[in-house]
Amino acid sequence: MTDLLALDDVNVYYGPFHALRGNTLTVGEGEIVSLLGGNASGKSTTMKTILGLIKVKSGTVHFAGEDVTHASTRHRVKAGIASVPEARRVFPQMTVDENLMAGAYTRSDRAGIAEDLERMRDRFPRLAERRRQEAGTLSGGEQQMLAFARALMSRPKLICMDEPTMGLAPKLVDQVLDEIVRINKELGVAVLFVEQQAELALSIASRGYVLATGEIVLKGTSNELLHNPQIQEAYLGKATQA
């Protein structure tokens, strides 16, 4: 599998604070990868770095064979990186349709955009019903679907999702994870997502990375990670046997 996204030895600082410490990470084409870690471990920073919202001090970011280390967010979105921001962040006073169009901002092929808009309405019937409703009036689950659809409107190769299940009821969490798998399988879009609940994350991801204080401390296939005693202790609540 070729690497779609590759971070190589990336260092990021917030002022004097070393937020990412020489991290190397890859996402293959059509792969689902999960990013695990506790609070302030650097998960969101990694996401922002990939999207070009934060400057890297050293190291490189490659996407689809191109060096995008210093590229603008706009350029990266055009190249095929889409984002489902933390806490969804739909535009609350814009309609559902306007939100979807915002996702297609970097595109200029009118026919293709109209086609994709139709597709999103087929894919998410709830959004079709509420196309003229302001996004702020949608329920949490609906907003999450809108955030997915909005990301897909840029025809991405990779979607970065920052805690897509945050603040959702357990039943909706399953729906969201199912949707991630469906997007991945049907559209072949690679997904890199941050998730607090390791077991859930690893149930749909093929691989995972574990961050702690800005450093990748563990990586491996989902199976390996699920059976790793450190992971079990830290995330899965199973006490290690003495």
Binding site: V77, R89, P92, E98, A102, R150
Partner: peptide, 23 residues
């Protein structure tokens, strides 16, 4: 307008607008 809509999106959520590739 395209820029007009981008202005509204930016006013409502600048960070999200950036993530959509809005300049």
């Amino acid at each position: 307008g395209k820029i007009g809509k981008a202005i509204r999106a930016t006013a409502q959520d600048q960070e999200a607008a950036l993530q959509m590739g809005i300049p």
